[in-house]
């Protein structure tokens, strides 16, 4: 257990030291999300928002639309930075450092979650700062606010880490995970209700959205920040179940990967 913890910390430290100087994350995880955020906000202006409360209790003004969208985007930012961290697994594979990791007796699960957490702390602070600024500027400050924000971050961190663990394992499997990125990136963003409230979805779309833990995380966080009477208890249960399932899936896949690598040895490509 102590070793596991040590590995998680070492992995996070490594990520930080390795990626801190790369300026590309300032684009992919700060500038682009901000542009897309405003793009989405303006897209909504084509609609008559005064009619919105009838369909969804969440949005009834431009202010609440802003908070609705910004929570969506920050949640997505957490999850997307996980996909990016997993993406870098490809580089580790090519540089042979993945082989060096496998050479050691380190617990793979610890490595995988270390990667997720490392990427989170590395990447999401920028957009989070932006989001908090938006939230503060669009809402009158209350005392509660200072307890709500940390809770929101805790929920995002927890669920994104579990998600990131799974992503990392999947990218361990295959060297061409580009297709997976295609499948996960846009669909996750859409069906999790980052930009459209999921409760207004048709049934088939709702069924898809249940798969993504981001959906439930967003429901809870929006419930907290927008103070709606959303059944957040129900969302919390759903989130817990989906996180447990993801965790189990991660372990199963990891075992398979470990066996596969030990049988075939194809971890490095020259």
């Amino acid at each position: 257990m102590k070793d596991t913890f040590k590995i998680v910390i070492a992995e996070m430290k490594k990520q930080h030291r390795h990626n801190f100087h790369s300026y590309s994350i300032y684009f992919s995880l700060l500038l682009w999300p901000i542009i897309i955020f405003f793009n989405t906000y303006y897209t909504y202006l084509s609609f008559d928002l005064t009619k919105a409360p009838v369909f969804s209790g969440l949005i009834n003004s431009k202010q609440s639309l802003l908070i609705f969208l910004i929570t969506g985007f920050i949640g997505y930012n957490f999850f997307y930075s996980m996909v990016q961290s997993a993406w870098q697994m490809g580089a580790e594979r090519q540089n042979g450092t993945l082989e060096t990791i496998i050479l050691s007796p380190a617990n793979w699960l610890a490595v995988v979650y270390g990667r997720s957490l490392g990427a989170l702390f590395q990447n999401v602070w920028m957009f989070s700062t932006f989001s908090i600024l938006i939230i503060i500027s669009s809402r009158s400050l209350e005392v509660n606010f200072f307890t709500q924000i940390p809770i929101a971050f805790f929920i995002f961190t927890l669920s994104a880490t579990v998600w990131g663990g799974l992503m990392n394992v999947i990218f361990l499997f295959s060297r061409d995970a580009a297709i997976l990125n295609n499948v996960l990136d846009d669909p996750m963003e859409f069906f999790s209700g980052v930009r459209v409230p999921t409760e207004t979805f048709p049934v088939w779309a709702k069924m898809i959205s249940v798969i993504f833990p981001l959906t439930h995380s967003l429901t809870i966080v929006r419930g907290i920040l927008l103070k709606t009477n959303i059944a957040w208890m129900e969302a919390a249960i759903k989130l817990s179940i989906s996180l447990v399932l993801l965790f189990i899936l991660t372990i199963v896949l990891l075992k398979l990967v470990e066996k596969n690598i030990r049988d075939n040895g194809n971890i490095t490509f020259y």
């Binding site: 989405t40 897209t43 909504y44 202006l45 084509s46 609609f47 008559d48 928002l49 009619k51 919105a52 369909f55 969804s56 846009d186 669909p187 963003e189 859409f190 930009r195 459209v196 409230p197 207004t200 979805f201 048709p202 779309a205």
Partner: peptide, 23 residues
Amino acid sequence: FFAILFPYFVYTFFLKGSISESF
């Protein structure tokens, strides 16, 4: 596909065709 799907969902399922005056 998703570039069309997002506004389509807002239009059809969420705000049910209520287009703003300015649009």
